[in-house]
């Protein structure tokens, strides 16, 4: 099973777990399994069409899935998936 690393702002939706084991052979299946087990995560990660929200970055290992095959990126049993919120702001 692959491992998903949950960023601190979203851990309140995973019972404070920082790492969650998920099943699935692709990122899409893994995120689907994750949101099945932790439904409150869904609105933070996915839009109404079930696609990853634009301000959510997903890495497999050290690589952004946008540089791989996006949500169809294939996973190995030892893959580590990181969910990374966009961090930005500014004065005015």
């Amino acid at each position: 099973m692959a491992t998903v690393i949950i960023p601190t702002p979203l851990r309140k939706f995973t019972n404070q777990n920082s790492r969650v084991q998920v099943s699935g052979s692709s990122v899409q299946e893994a995120i689907g399994d994750l949101t099945l087990n932790f439904p409150d995560l869904k609105k933070n990660l996915l839009d109404e069409n079930g696609k990853l929200r634009s301000f959510v970055n997903v890495f497999v290992g050290e690589e952004d899935i946008r540089n791989l095959q996006n949500e169809q990126t294939q996973l190995q049993p030892d893959s580590t998936i990181s969910i990374i919120p966009a961090i930005a702001g500014g004065s005015h």
Binding site: I5, P7, T8, N57, F59, E62, D64, S82, I84, P85, A86, I87, A88, G89, G90, S91, H92
Partner: peptide
């Protein structure tokens, strides 16, 4: 990492976030 007006905007890359976590 903001491209543009850094005097009133900031942005942190996903890689920097990953490293920090």
């Amino acid at each position: 990492a903001k491209e543009g007006d850094k005097r009133r905007r900031f942005e942190i890359t996903a890689k920097d976030y990953l490293k920090a976590e």
